[in-house]
Design a binder for these strands. Structure first.
Length: 841
RNA sequence: GCCCCGGUGGCGGAAUCGGCAGACGCGCCGGACUUAAAAUCCGGUUCCCCAAAAGGGAGUGCGGGUUCGAAUCCCGCCCGGGGCACCA
């Protein structure tokens, strides 16, 4: 028979066709008592083009899903599209294509690429969040949240991205800039917006992190920090209305009640509502211009700690109840309205920010905690002393350790009614309003008589007939959409034109996969019980504090509503590393694509190419490799094998075209090997059988452990390469050799499924590897009569001996003595049978 | 500045519980095949020293420590990456 050559395109098309025909990846209905293995990947925005980050993410997930199927689990492995968002709207503005059509076309392109990669998704469960069948349930949940007081509207200073022309949640602001436009500073605007009350769940979101054993520590740490729990005391300071003389109490939050005797002034945020009443009449003009100045600051400037702190004296005082002392009041830009109470008691001697402000404004610095063995003098201090020490100038607390005084002063404050212990969180409520068209309409309307009214008929559909302009949200000018009647009173009403943050969509999509075609409810709780929680979630770390907190919050609320079986949605989390490559640039064209670099010369102009450092693949740096081109040249199996082999999943993966060649060679060797074996002599047995079986079963042991426990596909593939190297030396095909080949194809099939299936059939098998079970380990095959044991003398390697793995110590020592040529009795012997022998002479 | 993670050949990386450092792959070197090249196959490849060889020495960022034995544990430093950063 003719020998065949490895042509991935042919092999992969054939195998994929068979998968499709036999519908092997369809899970079928889920029952409440099912124990389904749920393998989930963060679903993509349908840009139309798969990038290497996706390929890596999904290659890992597919290997896990295929492995678990072969281990006998029923696996839920779905894929869908996070389909709302700006690009579709920009395409509509620029090209006049309606976002619906544009998005559906991109979804089709992307689906084709995912299928081409051979990922084993159950496509009967797919959906896109931009379709009414999905987003109506966003609206349903919104109204449920509204009923429970978890959705509310408030006027607040919000983050505005001029590039997106919409507001952003706190989490979407990175270093004062938009998360999608890292060069665009976020502005502050005062707007009335919709929020979800994530802060109501702050304590549980934090406490549950301890139970998430399958999550990487660094992600949990990031979330802990993001939630930012702190314990302190809210203190009440009496002051007076500057015009009426009426008593006003200013509340401040502090984590350092031990420093209250060192207060020398008090600072309010410029936006603080009490400021208007506290300010002395002759200071009003100055206050106005100061506030205007602060309002002009971008968020970056406002929160930049290195900047000089600006402030303005109110010309009024307050009383410190602990000392009875009167101290001045200020407004200052370093006091933030949205943390604590918006007012700060200032202790310059023990807080660096207060210290800097005091020095700039000539305010006294009064130390009340002295470091061990030292005495601080306010006038001589160059920075605040924030560490522990001994109390001074603090009434009855003098001489106490400050940690004890912390409690003592908190007790005193509570006793006298000057304040109370409080817990604060850095976490803010989740701003979900967006002033954009391509999102889920927030299902409320505003009636002049009834106020805010929930929409009565869901879904509130996005109108198709709208005019896209550069200007802003097209919904505001869609009269048929905006003008409506109140379901309560029948009078004229106006629809909300804000749409929801797309993170709402991704906060419960994993539940919809369980029951994707339900038309009566977002999902059936019984069905969800059979599949949830997600056993393995895989995606990028960039979502550690956004998606992963929102989804936990959402799931927790649904748990409280009795809709989902567990508080936490994701049992195990794997955050894959980024895909990177060195950059190339030429003096003429700037950054150029790797493909435009021909032996160090720019393809376009011929000038010398500069090789830059390795960076995350990005369009702006042009250091991207198109998965499509790799598949065309080498096939999907090679792309998958390289990606899984080049680095462990959590590490950065540096793309290497030579590495791809290596993966390709490996797969072709297997292809050719099967071809050659067809021509080889066969026999019932051979004297190499025992050793081949040992290699085979050792491979099963290693691959199983590497995939199941650690997702170390790189070492699993290394073990399989060793097996191939061994099988390549076979000249007579015996049952033992054939077993080795079958194990190879089974164990490699989660990684390179097409090639393995093709070779499996070439060996004369008719079954699908997908339905085969994972090879079983025969411990007996691993047994050996003799092992090589290293012999150390005082920890230094001196010889190796061949003895039985369970040889008794005297026998091992005798063998070692012979090998070393020594006769003396060792002073001490450390012997680990089969592992090491260490002699102290 | 604070918190977390990491540092192993020319490169990506292995070493599971404190027990042979460098698996596997890339690259490189040599050989076979070829008129030649590519592809393929076989062999070598941590560094240094003496050496024909056998052999010896050093070695997991640096300095110390614990231990019969340390890439692995502890202390101090250096470097790199990530996160947070006026949060009272």
């Amino acid at each position: 028979m003719m020998e065949r050559k490895y042509e991935p395109a042919v092999v992969e098309a054939g195998v994929q066709q068979r998968w499709k025909k036999e519908k092997v990846f369809e899970l079928g209905p889920i029952q409440p008592e099912d124990e389904i293995y749920y393998c989930l990947e963060m679903f993509p925005y349908p840009s139309g083009k798969l990038h290497m980050g996706h390929v890596r993410n999904y290659a890992i997930g597919d290997a896990v899903a295929r492995f678990q199927r072969m281990r006998g689990r029923r696996v839920l492995y779905p894929m869908g599209f996070d389909a709302f968002g700006l690009p579709a709207e920009n395409a509509a503005i620029q090209g006049g294509v309606p976002p619906q059509e544009w998005t559906e076309a991109r979804i089709e392109e992307m689906t084709a690429q995912l299928v081409r990669m051979g990922f084993s998704y159950d496509w009967t469960r797919t959906f896109a969040t931009c379709r009414p069948e999905y987003y109506r349930w966003n609206q349903y949940f919104f109204l449920k949240f509204l009923e429970r007081g978890l959705a509310y509207r408030k006027a607040a200073p919000v983050n505005w991205c001029p590039e997106c022309r919409t507001v952003l949640a706190n989490e979407q602001v990175h270093e004062g800039c938009c998360w999608r436009h890292e060069e665009t500073p976020v502005e502050r605007r005062d707007l009335t917006q919709w929020f979800f009350r994530t802060t109501a769940y702050a304590e549980r979101l934090l406490a549950n992190l301890d139970s998430l054993e399958g999550w990487p520590d660094h992600v949990k740490e990031m979330q802990r920090h993001w939630i930012g729990r702190s314990e302190g005391v809210t203190l009440r300071f009496p002051s007076r209305d500057a015009t009426t003389g009426e008593e006003i109490v200013i509340e401040t939050y502090t984590t350092r009640p031990d420093t209250v005797y060192g207060i020398t002034y008090l600072v309010l945020a410029p936006e603080h509502p009490l400021v208007d009443r506290l300010v002395a009449s002759e200071q009003k003009e100055g206050l106005k211009s100061f506030r205007a100045e602060v309002a002009r600051q971008t968020l970056t400037e406002r929160t930049d700690g290195t900047r000089e702190k600006k402030g303005y004296a109110l010309g009024n005082t307050f009383t410190n109840p602990f000392t009875g002392e009167e101290c001045p009041l200020f407004v200052a830009d370093y006091a933030l309205m949205d943390y604590g109470t918006g007012a700060v008691m200032a202790v310059p001697a023990h807080d660096q920010r207060d210290f800097e402000f005091a020095r700039a404004h000539g305010l006294p610095v009064r130390p009340v905690i002295h470091p061990p063995g030292k005495r601080l003098i306010g006038a001589e201090m160059t920075e605040a002393y924030e560490d522990d020490g001994i109390m001074a100038n603090s009434g009855d607390f003098n001489g106490w350790e400050n940690r004890r005084a912390w409690e003592g002063i908190a007790d005193l404050a509570e006793e006298r009614g000057w304040g109370r212990r409080t817990v604060q969180y850095r976490l803010r409520d989740w701003l979900i309003s967006r002033q954009r068209y391509w999102g889920t309409p927030i299902p409320v309307l505003y009636c002049e008589t009834c106020g805010v009214v929930p929409a009565s008929d869901l879904p509130v559909l996005l109108p198709r007939e709208v005019r896209f302009t550069e200007g802003g949200n097209p919904l505001t000018t869609a009269r048929d959409f905006v003008e409506t009647t109140c379901p309560k009173c029948g009078g004229a009403a106006r629809r909300e034109t804000d749409t929801m943050d797309t993170f709402v969509d991704s906060s419960w999509y994993f539940l919809r996969y369980c029951d994707p075609s339900n038309t009566d409810a977002p999902f059936s709780p019984e069905t969800v019980r059979g599949a949830m929680p997600v056993d393995q979630y895989i995606g990028g770390v960039e979502h550690a504090c956004m998606h992963l907190i929102y989804a936990r919050f959402f799931n927790m609320v649904l748990y409280d509503m009795g809709l989902v079986p567990t508080e936490e949605p994701f049992r195990n989390l794997l955050t894959q590393g980024m895909v990177s490559l060195e950059t190339y640039s030429c003096p003429e064209h700037g950054f150029i694509y790797p493909a435009e670099n021909e032996d160090g010369r720019c393809q376009k102009c011929g000038s010398k190419v500069t090789v830059g450092r390795v960076e995350k693949m990005s369009k702006s740096k042009k250091n991207t490799i198109d998965p499509g081109e790799i598949i065309e040249r080498y096939g999907a199996d090679t792309a998958r094998t390289f990606i899984l082999f080049a680095a462990p999943p959590e590490n950065e993966l540096i793309w290497s075209s030579q590495g791809v060649e290596g993966a390709w060679r490996f797969l072709r060797r297997i292809y050719d090997l099967v071809e050659r074996w067809r021509e080889y002599e066969t026999a019932d047995s051979d004297d190499q059988d025992k050793e081949i079986r040992r290699k085979t079963h050792d491979t099963i042991r290693r691959v199983t452990r590497d995939i199941e426990e650690r997702f170390q596909f790189n070492t699993a593939i290394a073990a399989l390469m060793e097996l191939v190297n061994r099988l390549q030396a076979v000249t007579i095909v015996t049952p033992a050799a054939m077993e080795g080949m079958e194990v190879l194809l089974k164990c490699l099939s989660p990684i390179a499924p097409h090639l393995c299936q093709d070779r499996w059939e070439r060996l004369g098998k008719t079954t699908l590897l997908v339905k085969e079970s994972w090879p079983e380990l025969d411990e007996k095959a691993l047994e050996v009569e003799e092992v090589e044991v290293p012999v150390q003398v005082k920890g230094k390697l001196r010889a190796r001996i061949r003895i039985a793995p369970d040889a008794p110590e005297p026998e091992a020592v005798a063998a070692a003595a012979a090998a070393l040529g020594i006769t003396e009795e060792p002073k001490r012997v450390i012997y680990r049978p089969g592992r090491i022998l260490n002699l102290i002479l």
